[in-house]
Design a protein around this nucleic acid. Sequence first.
DNA 1: TTGAAAGCGTTACCAA
DNA 2: TTGGTAACGCTTTCAA
Lengths: 347, 347
Amino acid sequence: MGVRLMDIAKEVGVSEATVSLALNNKTVIKEETRRKIWETAERMGYRPNVIAKTLVKQKSNVIGLVITDFANVYFGQFVKSCVAKIVENGYQPLIASSQDKFSEEERVIDQFISQRVAGIIIIPPTSSNLHEVTYLKSLETYGIRYLYATAHYTNVDAPYVMVNLKHGSYLAVKYLLDMGHRRIYFLGAHPQQIPTKMRFEGYKEAFAERGLEADESMMIRCENADFESSYVETLRLVKSGVRIDAITTINDIMALGSLRALRENGLRVPEDLSLIGYDDIVFSDVAAIPLTTVHQDIDAISRRSVNLLINMIQNDIQRNDKILIEPHLVVRNSTGVCSAVRDIQAR
Amino acid sequence: MGVRLMDIAKEVGVSEATVSLALNNKTVIKEETRRKIWETAERMGYRPNVIAKTLVKQKSNVIGLVITDFANVYFGQFVKSCVAKIVENGYQPLIASSQDKFSEEERVIDQFISQRVAGIIIIPPTSSNLHEVTYLKSLETYGIRYLYATAHYTNVDAPYVMVNLKHGSYLAVKYLLDMGHRRIYFLGAHPQQIPTKMRFEGYKEAFAERGLEADESMMIRCENADFESSYVETLRLVKSGVRIDAITTINDIMALGSLRALRENGLRVPEDLSLIGYDDIVFSDVAAIPLTTVHQDIDAISRRSVNLLINMIQNDIQRNDKILIEPHLVVRNSTGVCSAVRDIQAR
DNA sequence: TTGAAAGCGTTACCAA
DNA sequence: TTGGTAACGCTTTCAA
């Protein structure tokens, strides 16, 4: 099935080697022969077999990309950005999902090794920051370069590119403090998980900087880092009757969940209280109230990741850089001066 | 670099063939030999080279998937669903984006052919329904099975799986008519494009069924099928001062854009007018006002697509099925009885 | 139960 | 400027 070099060779009446040389535009081949071979190849609908090519060349131009969830907008944007950069550089992307499970990450990476990819960019599952990462040995055995993106395993000494989560959270909370807010609730997931942990450190830092002490009880632990959990916890908070100046969440979807709960209880954002998200996915601008949020430069993460990986591939060396991208705050309409402060000023 | 069958063979003191047989668990090999080979393979960190395997077996288990945009939630969900089903069936997914451009679709498919994939699921660019699709001949030359999903080229006789767009729109408009709405604006893209065209046909059908004639001037052509364009056109509509009973859009993002324009002008949804989206992406439920929308069963599209493709691959035959999935209306909070009708009833 | 050898489609080296 | 041939890592057939 299909056309092979041999078929073209027979048709033109030359050897396989000549056809190969001609199709790769080696100038050793006489102009006329080359033209004839190209024409015949075209006419026969020849498509080179990269499988065979890779086998004989003993190197692939495939870059693997392990993400956790195709349906998550944030990763969708990351994939889009990465793929563009990989293609630009003449490599071919191969994307797989770990479904946010470490066991699947292992399976997928084993598959990539069997594929003999040149390098891999790994986005680890959100839930796990500690793991016995056994596949690294295999990657080294097969000379496959790798790095982690958007997060990393704390117990593994490997290169990564991610956003300075702590600083992002610091910026958000500092801004809220500047606006007079004090009772700032923090909605996160498990306090042990990196995404939550790092952000809460930023939260505390902002308070400390002002000589204030963060009230740990304002760190609300949500079951999952999603719309529903955030909605539920915000509802509970509102019903409890405590004073809430502001709420920060560890991603934008959670902020939207929170927003829904607030609005359903007649609380106005930002008049009654402020709300800040995290990530700046497209939908934060599309929400009921355009969300103030911490912008993570996805493009920068992907650019640095791809560049570092390709650098490792081309120099045939596994490096160990740790790259932190600095986030910044995007102020939109979900935040304002603390209502308590406003009341005082109004007098 | 890396471990080969030969390395294991040398280590154990048997032939390559024996190692191959043993690792593939052929029972011809003596239990003890097999065990020893497995142990050694494990110890040496052996990973089979699928490149070589594919070459010799002369068949691949890779299914290509061409989408238009990784950052689009709708396709993100489709990819997720497809990938799960492809993996379940023991195949390996290979995903690429056409960036919504036909030229890129061609490039990507050529790449897939060079990869000698077993079959391809193609999501065509939204903008093009007519195209000289030259790659089909190549696909046939190399015996690669294919089908279109979520849309198709009208001038090409090839299998496809998509939602009955016309019927979805019909359901939405019929519902609005039932609620007493008459001045129903339709926000779409170019009237020639399939997604817009089919939906507007459903719109007209719902009117016709009631013996009403659809007013073509209520079909508003947006520059793009996105948030911004929809926002702009809705704004223009509102400012023009015409009476608006309801608005339907061809996707949920557009509905959100529309919603923003309405709210900014003090119009309440659904009290003052109703709004219906299309697609039922996650965010329609997360919007300021949970959106009434037409649900497209992405899971069904992907299931039917993958099943049909695998059927073709395994029976080694290119079929030509056209599969239409029936959509249904999901009523949430953005729709209600027409205010004009309510006023009358209130008297 | 095991081994030798041919072959998959391509490239690359050496000869012609 | 071209051709013959070995090699890439694996599977498979046939013989031993």
